[in-house]
Amino acid sequence: MNIKFTIEKNSNVLKFQQLVDAILDSISRNELKEGDMLPSVNQIMKDCQLSRDTVFKAYAELKKRDVVESVPNRGYFVTRKITKIFLFLDTFKAYKEVLYHSILNHLPKNISVDLHFHHYNIDLFDKIITESVGRYTKYIVMNFDHKKVKNIIDKIPKEQLLIIDWKINGEGKSCVYQNFGEAVYNCLDKNLSAISKYKRFTLFYPDFTYHPREIVEHFEHFGKNNNLNYRVITTFDEFDLKKGDLYFLVSDRTLAKFLDQCSEKGFEPGQEVGVISYNDTPMKKYVKEGITVISTDFNQMGQKAAEFIVQGKPVNVEVPTTLKLRSSL
């Protein structure tokens, strides 16, 4: 095969992984087809200036994925077509890891997922999407609230795009999302008796968060409709735990501060003070005998995203949001 792969010497990605990704990309583009022979180990070593061990490691990884097979005294051959998927998340947190692995676990082995992060940086968001258009079969994008986002994601063909987690900028597009407003209100309303035992209910909506602001509006409606002593704070200067307080925290950074103050003041969550955290993670059911959470089902979100990838049909699904009652409330 007259095909060469590019390896970046100064990249943070390991060279063997670069070679794996380059071969997968060639297969997904049909530059390499089922039955085609890959370049020999010696040829890759020469073209890419790689060690023999690095090339063998890359080929071993491709064999492990059932993408290539080795034939004694002949070489390595492509065994099947690879579909490449573009997955664009905001940041990599514990609950995003649940989502990511759920997507992978519900996909067949011949589908490869390239994971990217934008960290709410609009220039990076634009750059990565612009450079990725035309290179993938499907695009799974977790976007955010910025005036430029819609025009950027409109670069992706609508039938190839799925918006996940937050439906913003998803008009007329396939979406698998959670409801940050009404669903949260309903979760609180169903647990009014547990909430009412506290003297004051505080939503800590920090000024550094990108969490959808509609949660503030629905929290305030809930407090007003039920005649609660409620408030919204935005800075750590206002965050001083008092006995009888219940906190609703949308950031794990603020949850850590809450637990620090509990330790300093000798408060036991669920007794002197209470806390509801947003987004469940595998650890929250174990911390302090269990942190109460309001969360969507990220496993289900990943499963629905995988169904869109495999079936290719338009989808518009709201994944349920529930309150998991644990000892902290």
Rank of each mutant, 00 (worst) to 15 (best):
E131N: 12
L162M: 13
K33L: 14
L62D: 10
T137D: 10
D66W: 00
A256R: 08
I276S: 08
K173E: 07
P39D: 02
V319F: 05
K288W: 06
G302L: 04
M1I: 03
K63G: 11
H218L: 11
E69G: 12
G312E: 08
N225R: 13
Y185M: 05
L192F: 12
S51K: 04
E307F: 03
H146N: 15
K158Q: 09
R253F: 05
S26P: 10
E307C: 07
F144L: 10
F201D: 09
D297V: 00
L249P: 03
L325K: 11
L14S: 13
K190P: 01
T322K: 09
N42F: 06
L32M: 10
N279P: 06
V232I: 15
D66Y: 09
V13R: 08
K33G: 05
V13Y: 01
K9G: 07
F5A: 11
K155N: 14
Y286L: 10
N121Y: 05
G302P: 14
H119M: 01
E264D: 08
K265G: 01
P157Y: 06
N42V: 07
E307N: 07
N105V: 02
S26V: 01
K148M: 11
E318I: 09
L107F: 03
D245V: 03
V319D: 01
M142W: 05
K150R: 14
N110D: 15
Q303R: 13
E131I: 00
L50W: 11
K265R: 11
F239K: 11
V68F: 07
D53V: 10
R135T: 05
V273Q: 00
Q18R: 05
V71Q: 13
R29G: 02
S40D: 00
D47M: 07
E159F: 00
E8C: 02
N299D: 14
Q300V: 02
F204Y: 14
L124E: 05
K224Q: 15
A58R: 01
Q261V: 01
V67C: 15
K96F: 10
T234I: 07
M37R: 14
I140P: 14
S11I: 01
I3N: 11
A183W: 07
L104C: 11
S196V: 03
I156R: 09
P282H: 06
V293C: 13
G244I: 04
N279H: 13
K96N: 15
N10S: 12
Q18G: 07
R326I: 07
G274E: 05
T234V: 10
E214T: 13
L87V: 10
L89D: 09
L99Y: 10
F117I: 02
L203N: 11
